[in-house]
């Protein structure tokens, strides 16, 4: 049964804008590919972050112009970076020691599915039969806080928030906040469950429930997604 959406879904930039509100001054942040990368465009005023990349650089700055690309200065997505003051370089073993060692305050990752317990599946699409794990498993277990930024439904219209992941897992019980184009959930509590805290304009808890394949509790202070 498909119920029409009560209002339009947020675009990718707005998801990124909402995630960026979680950034705190001085955080070491690792952004995944896709919507997570967009978050760097919306860092709140007065907040300075140190961006970490698995390619082996801390304090990575903005992307370089195509013509100025230096093959020895890339981010984890293979894009060329501008050289900025205060960068440091290191090899892959150290890049991942930083991740597993708990030195990354926050990572923002995309997802194929997230379970109600905060299990994450984001590396293997069964229909393809082969996948890239990259640094996703290390980030999911190593970062102090894991935020998922994704569209609420997949291309077939199925909920990406599920009671149990059916796609191969990246890590168990690792996600603490889910920001989608219709809602924001915290994953909290001793038994880890979903807690709906914000909805997109024009949406309410029932409408979110109709597009979500997992049970969730609704905050007494449920509000519209705030961007400022």
């Amino acid at each position: 049964m498909t119920i029409p959406d009560p209002a339009s879904r947020l675009d990718r930039e707005v998801i990124a804008m909402r995630v960026a509100r979680e950034f705190r001054d001085g955080d070491v942040v690792n952004l995944g590919i896709g919507i997570p990368t967009l978050c760097s465009d919306f860092v709140p005023p007065g907040v300075q972050l140190l961006y970490h990349s698995e390619s082996g650089v801390l304090n990575c700055g903005p992307l370089a112009d195509e013509a100025d690309g230096d093959i020895d200065l890339i981010n984890a997505g293979g894009q060329f970076l501008q050289a900025v003051p205060g960068m440091s370089f290191f090899d892959s073993a150290e890049a991942f020691a930083m991740i597993r060692g708990g030195h990354i305050d926050l990572t923002v990752l995309g997802a194929l599915q997230v379970s109600a317990r905060g299990d994450l599946a984001n590396w293997f699409l069964p229909s393809r039969g082969v996948g890239n794990v990259g640094g996703a498993m290390d980030l999911a277990v190593g970062a102090k806080r894991v935020i998922v930024a994704m569209e609420h439904s997949d291309r077939e219209g199925d909920s990406k928030i599920v009671s149990e992941c059916t796609f191969p897992l990246t890590a168990m019980r690792c996600v603490s906040l889910i920001v989608t184009d219709v809602a924001v959930f915290e994953v909290t509590g001793r038994n880890r469950g979903l807690w709906l805290i914000e909805v997109a304009p024009g949406w309410d808890a029932d409408a979110v429930g109709s597009v979500t394949a997992a049970d969730f509790a609704v905050s007494d202070e449920l509000k519209e997604i705030e961007l400022l």
Partner: peptide, 29 residues
């Protein structure tokens, strides 16, 4: 996993035959 891959190489070069890591626990890998 990328961090496990490079650490397996680092361990080989440093004479460590094996190590425990939280990365990948509970997954197909």
């Amino acid at each position: 996993p990328q961090g496990t891959l490079v650490e397996r190489m680092r361990a080989a070069g440093a004479g460590i035959p094996a190590f425990y890591t939280p990365t990948g626990a509970g997954t197909d890998l």
